[in-house]
Design a binder for these strands. Structure first.
Lengths: 208, 208
DNA sequence: TATAATAATGACCAGGTGGTCATATTATGA
DNA sequence: TCATAATATGACCACCTGGTCATTATTATA
């Protein structure tokens, strides 16, 4: 079966990039329903008919773009997971938070799309996507926590599901607030190192 | 100065209620930008011109409605705070979570408006509102935590700001997930008592 | 170069939006 | 009862939306 992005992927890379960039800007600045295809074509410098030739619907363009964002997030997570397998839980957690901060710095717009997806309720297929991300997060943090339990760095009798939930809540909230502060220019209200330290201490002392 | 809701408040209570109900439904089901004034008047059974006579703009109607939601939330929080001043931190926390769950059960639509406000980025004056709520939460949870520190139930050397942040993150996330699960009908995935217990244990053992 | 195939274009469509305002209805008071 | 003031009404406005498609421009083939 031919995907709706097939025609798009035949395009010259430069044109693809223009369209992706324009879409990322639009979907990061407005939510799904208010994001405008007219604005996308305007910014990308192509005709409206062309865009609807590459992507049959607004929904399919959005699908393509948020997959891109999630893919990028996943890459960061995988990288930091693999680079820290041998570190103790505390150090590992620090690196994970750092990596999140780094992602936000490197890809603020993708981060915004990601947070929109998680926290707002208006994207198409929202429930399916959120469930997917939940599973991803569970697997990812679950692995980190399991490792720590195996090494007796965390109480081996922990309710792993709950521990993952707590960790996920705090990490996501911290990164979201950090992202928001950063995009409003007052990033200094977060002394990053202090917070990273605080989070790790909270969890190590807290669950031990 | 005469507020834009002045004319509205002169109306017969019954008519006010119809308009408030219709607005609450609309703003709970759609986000600010996609909520429709046409739908509101239709549901309330009044003419469009009338609604714009009572509220000069969509934004001022929204303002009125979310203040209502926040007011209700505050009332619940105040109540549980005052009723639990003498209880130990653990019991107190349990009651707070319970009260949140109760609010969601009693006012699911107001809860939705509240969560929309916190988690989505598209309401007018969003930044101001969110800052206000942040302050509210800081005062509220800050007081609870300070009490516990004073009684040596929590480590008196805690960074209170961080402790509040952690607590706020987890409480909000739990209630949001609970609310979502409930409105999708699969509330049973949350064994409420178990979670309430888990959260309190996590914090008491964690911060002590 | 002539022809066929492919890709790009933007005027156009139906349907929605927040908001307005001349007109119709109702309430008030003498 | 009649005149005046207050309120309710919905047709209407300009503007925007996602999406379409006949026409035009470009490219590939011969």
């Amino acid at each position: 079966m031919i995907s709706s992005t097939n025609k798009f992927e035949q395009l010259p890379k430069e044109k693809q990039a223009r369209i992706v960039d324009a879409s990322v800007v639009e979907f990061s600045e407005r939510n799904y329903e208010t994001a405008s295809m007219n604005k996308v074509v305007e910014r990308a410098g192509i005709a409206k008919g062309s865009l609807f030739n590459y992507f049959k619907t607004k929904s399919s363009l959005y699908h393509y773009i948020y997959h891109l964002a999630i893919g990028e997030v996943k890459a960061y997570l995988r990288k930091v997971r693999d680079e820290t397998v041998d570190l103790p839980f505390e150090k590992r957690l620090t690196k994970i938070v750092d990596s999140g901060v780094q992602f936000i710095t490197d890809h603020p717009r993708l981060a915004r799309i990601y947070f929109r997806l998680i926290y707002s309720a208006d994207s198409p297929n929202r429930q399916k996507i959120v469930t997917e991300l939940q599973v991803l997060s569970n697997d990812y943090l679950g692995e980190i926590i399991q490792d720590a339990m195996d090494r007796n760095e965390l109480d081996p009798n922990l309710d792993k599901g709950q521990a993952v939930f707590f960790l996920d809540s705090i990490l996501n909230r911290f990164l979201k607030d950090y992202h928001e502060a950063k995009s409003h220019g007052d990033v200094d209200q977060f002394n990053r190192d202090e917070w990273v330290k605080g989070i790790t201490i909270f969890f190590t002392k807290g669950l031990k």
